[in-house]
């Protein structure tokens, strides 16, 4: 695209061009620049969303081959489905379990390895490793780690004299095992953003706080955390998106079980669409989760930009 646009307007010519042509070019330029992205997004994002929205209003009863308009029927069916309401509840627990924990750990990690020493370089690498493992592999590794009786966890817990649990097979424990994996996998990744955010903090403010007699906790609580608010808003958006769009570990490890205890909304969608042939219900659930995420992101990003303005 760059070369095409440049060829149309070599810079000498653009200077000599009359004002009106210049203005037209100015008006067109943003769209030219956005065109490649918009075209691709149209093909692979907006088109599917449109299709999902259309499907959410229709029903294709399995084994009939017919398509019927059902209005909001899929949505009412969705809320009447106990498996869906349970998956929403599971997702809330999952969000509450993963988001604050991984973000708090990320901030602590960032503070701890902030200075560029050799030790910290190794630490950063170790903390970031988990986000580099393919989920297909990570989930299989954790399958072994959580193996009841003979897995890594139970093996070492037994040495400490602690009786292990059936980490993935007990409905009271399984969701928390998945939460543990998610925190392990994401904390290092979010740390990167906090490391970035920390470098933007004005050194004078921190020094002033130290001189004013703030201890480490007070510095963190009253100076660092408020100043990092824009970063936090950004990481929060990423983390919440991850909560609703990452499902590979559920697919590989528990398939939503035992007894639906690890069924997250996205797994519910996956199951309805690909196992139960219930495309309408799957589409309705997807559209709800997309709208929820979009509302949330717009809100947080607005907050973040306001925060960024206030901070600068």
């Amino acid at each position: 695209m760059t070369s095409v646009a440049a060829a149309q307007a070599p810079f000498d010519a653009s200077h000599a061009r009359p004002v009106s042509g210049h203005r037209l070019q100015r008006r067109l330029l943003p769209w030219l620049l956005l065109a490649p992205s918009l075209l691709l997004l149209a093909a692979f994002t907006y088109l599917p969303i449109g299709r999902v929205a259309w499907e959410s209003l229709h029903d294709k009863p399995h084994a009939t081959g017919k398509t019927l308009f059902v209005g909001l029927g899929n949505y009412t069916a969705l809320f009447a489905d106990k498996a869906f309401t349970q998956s929403v509840a599971n997702n809330l627990i999952y969000a509450a379990g993963t988001v604050p924990a991984s973000m708090a750990l990320a901030l602590l990690f960032a503070l701890a390895v902030q200075r560029a020493t050799r030790f910290n370089a190794i630490m950063r690498a170790i903390l970031l490793f988990p986000s580099m493992v393919p989920l297909v592999a990570a989930a299989s590794l954790f399958f072994f780690i959580f193996l009841p009786g003979v897995g890594l966890f139970d093996h070492y817990l037994a040495k400490l004299g602690v009786r292990g649990a059936n980490w993935l097979g007990d409905p009271d424990v399984a969701l928390w095992s998945l939460i543990g994996i998610t925190v392990w996998k994401n904390a290092g990744y979010y740390m990167l953003f906090y490391l970035a955010g920390l470098t933007t903090l004005p050194g004078e403010v921190l020094e002033a706080a130290t001189i004013d007699g703030c201890n480490a906790w007070q510095r963190l609580r009253y100076v660092i955390v408020p100043l990092l608010a824009p970063t936090t808003a950004f990481v929060l958006v990423i983390a919440l998106i991850n909560v609703l769009t990452q499902v590979d570990h559920v697919i590989v490890l528990t398939k939503g079980g035992p007894s639906n205890s690890t069924k997250l909304v996205l797994y519910y969608i996956y199951e309805q669409a690909h196992e139960n042939f219930a495309y309408g219900k799957a589409a309705a659930a997807s559209l709800l989760s997309v709208s929820f995420l979009l509302a949330l992101s717009v809100f947080s990003l607005k907050t973040m930009e306001r925060g960024a303005h206030a901070a600068s």
Binding site: F143, L147, N166
Partner: peptide
Amino acid sequence: MAQGVVEGPALSTTFLAGK
């Protein structure tokens, strides 16, 4: 028999391990 759900690959591994 163990309480809770034991998946197939978990069961075969415990069987091989003599557990």
